[in-house]
Amino acid sequence: HSHMSHTQVIELERKFSHQKYLSAPERAHLAKNLKLTETQVKIWFQNRRYKTKRKQLSSEL
């Protein structure tokens, strides 16, 4: 499990705020920019979407 830097997370968050789903080319581009693997980016987005979904569910209770 590799640790992401604060800067990388900020960039991922910024991208996520604009779009929740990335196409393969977008993911490849973002990964390259942030010096991450595409898998890391993919998993981060999956986890981030899951967290957002959970938060929405709990706020509706």
Rank of each mutant, 00 (worst) to 15 (best):
A28G: 04
H29T: 13
L30M: 05
R48G: 03
K35W: 04
E60H: 08
H6I: 13
L22V: 04
E60D: 13
Q8R: 04
F45D: 00
E38R: 03
T7W: 15
L36P: 00
K20N: 09
Y21F: 08
K35Y: 08
I43N: 08
H18Q: 10
E11I: 06
T37L: 04
A24G: 10
W44G: 00
A28H: 10
N47Q: 13
S17P: 02
A31C: 04
S5I: 03
E38K: 04
A24F: 11
L30F: 04
E60M: 08
F16D: 01
Y21G: 02
E38V: 11
A28D: 04
W44P: 00
R27P: 00
S58V: 12
K20R: 10
Q40W: 03
M4Y: 08
L57C: 15
V41Q: 00
V9D: 03
R49L: 05
A31N: 01
E38H: 04
E60F: 07
K51L: 11
R54G: 11
S17Y: 07
K53C: 15
Q40E: 07
M4T: 02
V41M: 02
K20C: 15
L22D: 00
F16M: 02
K42I: 07
Y21I: 04
Q8P: 01
E60Y: 06
L22A: 01
S5R: 07
S2H: 12
R49A: 04
E13Q: 08
K55V: 10
A31Q: 01
K55R: 09
Q40C: 08
K15S: 07
A24I: 09
L30V: 05
E26T: 03
F16W: 05
R54Q: 13
F16V: 01
H29Y: 09
T39L: 14
L36Y: 03
A24T: 06
S5D: 06
E11Y: 06
T52E: 15
H3Y: 11
H18K: 13
K15Y: 15
Q56V: 07
K53R: 13
V41L: 04
S59A: 12
R14H: 10
R49K: 03
M4A: 03
K32S: 07
H18P: 02
F16H: 03
V41N: 00
A31S: 04
E13C: 15
H3V: 08
F16Y: 15
H3M: 10
R27M: 13
K20M: 06
K20D: 02
H6M: 11
S58Y: 07
N33Y: 13
H6L: 14
Q8E: 02
H1V: 10
A28P: 00
R14N: 06
L34T: 03
T7M: 13
Q46K: 15
L30N: 00
L34W: 01
L12F: 01
L22H: 01
K55S: 11
Y50I: 14
S17E: 13
E60G: 13
Q19G: 05
H29C: 13
H3R: 09
R48S: 04
P25V: 12
H29E: 15
S5A: 03
E13V: 07
S23R: 04
N47W: 15
W44L: 02
Y21E: 00
W44Q: 01
S58A: 10
E60L: 15
H6C: 15
N47A: 09
T37S: 10
